[in-house]
Design a protein around this nucleic acid. Structure first.
Length: 324
RNA sequence: AGGCUCAUAGUGUUAAUGGUAGCACGUUGGUCUCCAAAACCAAAAGUAGGGGUUCAAAUCCUCUUGGGCCUG
């Protein structure tokens, strides 16, 4: 779909849709924010962030969260709603987000999902039936130790006894998944064997931003540089002072990579390169997730290249390949 | 242009008794129902080039090319 057709497509979608939900997605640094504001203005939309990290307060630079000015009067939800020391689960996210959707509908506006966390998007679009078993730290710790002591296969075999179907789907080395599956079985029993695709409660219009891979990687590199200029290091320092490093929130991109620099273990250049690389890897995983949806309206993007500008490593790499 | 030495995937390698070219990182593809910006799986990709010895060469010999060191 071309960007110029967007308005028309949205209009015809809204005409037919009984329970409309607009989903704006794309890999990190693809420009979702700007597009979402544009759409929100077109349809009277309100935005629900589907971003597992922008949930947290105090990580605005690292997560490249939208500023108030950029919001341009469009209501945003699920942004900066908890402090990083509070663990926010998928189930919780889903409940909250669905509540917001209802409120938005009541106001006569159109709910929009905007963000890059595939799991969160899917959980709402497909109405995931998330097992109501809260993570149990003690049990997890015990299971991890077991895996360490007797090997991953051992723990996996244990899962197989409890729940053969899950065991078959989960690779033994994926200890995190194995532990969770055991946890569900031990603490509540009912498992999610019936993963049948349910019909979505929503009429969904999905828009995605599609970049040539090398250009996307360039955008990522540039964004990281900008984040550093905007004071990423100070932000991380503040977070480190207040919160435990092991918190899930602290594993965010732009945080865990900068920590070694602050501790004096690595140079800033080194940390920056790692951050860029990890962000590129993340973008790749996001794209893999999105590919499961065949009905995304991908808008092709492209920059008209400026000849000057300092070149990033990826740009140089891309250049080396003879084009044609 | 005398002597010595080195050359293994994109990168690194202090991997390979003359006998299946390995590992790490990167790259690419994939999995995913409460850590998901996480965790995990898989694949592609290499002996600088030419000759020779050998049943068999990254490995031994030789020439070429390229890098480093030493000596005028």
């Amino acid at each position: 779909m071309k960007h110029s057709d967007l308005k028309k497509e949205l209009k015809s979608f809204l005409k037919k849709a009984k329970n409309p939900l607009i989903v704006v997605l794309g890999p990190t640094a693809s420009g979702k924010t700007a597009l979402s504001i544009e759409i929100a203005h077109l349809v009277k939309g309100e935005i629900i962030s589907t971003d597992s990290r922008q949930i947290y307060k105090g990580m605005e630079i690292g997560t490249d969260a939208i500023s108030e000015k950029e919001q341009d009067g469009v209501p945003h939800h699920m942004l900066g709603i908890v402090t990083p020391d509070r663990e926010f689960s998928l189930a919780e996210y889903k409940d909250e987000a669905l509540k917001k959707i209802e409120e938005i509908k009541k106001r006569g506006n159109i709910p929009m999902l905007v963000g890059g966390t595939g799991l969160y998007i899917s959980s709402i679009m497909e109405g995931y039936d998330v097992p109501r078993i809260a993570p149990n730290k003690k049990l997890r710790e015990k299971l991890y130790k077991e895996a360490e002591k007797h090997g991953n296969e051992y723990l996996h075999a244990r899962l197989a006894k409890l729940d053969a179907a899950s065991a078959e789907k989960i690779h033994p080395n994926n200890v995190r998944y194995v532990v969770r599956a055991i946890e569900i079985n031990l603490l509540g029993g009912k498992n999610k064997i019936d993963n049948k695709k349910k019909k979505s409660p929503f009429d969904i219009f999905m828009v995605g931003l599609e970049w040539p891979r090398d250009e996307l990687y360039e955008r990522i590199d540039m964004r990281v540089d900008r984040q550093l200029e905007r004071g990423l290091i100070d932000e991380v320092k503040k977070l480190l002072k207040k919160y435990d490093e092991d918190l899930p929130a602290m594993s965010s991109l732009g945080l865990k990579e900068i920590v070694p620099y602050i501790k004096g273990e690595k140079s800033l250049e080194e940390c920056t390169e790692i951050l860029k690389k990890n962000t590129r890897n993340y973008a790749k995983r996001q794209l893999t997730w999105f590919r499961r949806y065949k009905n995304i309206n991908w808008i092709p993007c492209e920059t008209t290249k400026k000849p000057q500008k300092q070149k990033t490593q990826t740009a140089k790499k891309a250049e080396r390949k003879p084009k044609k």
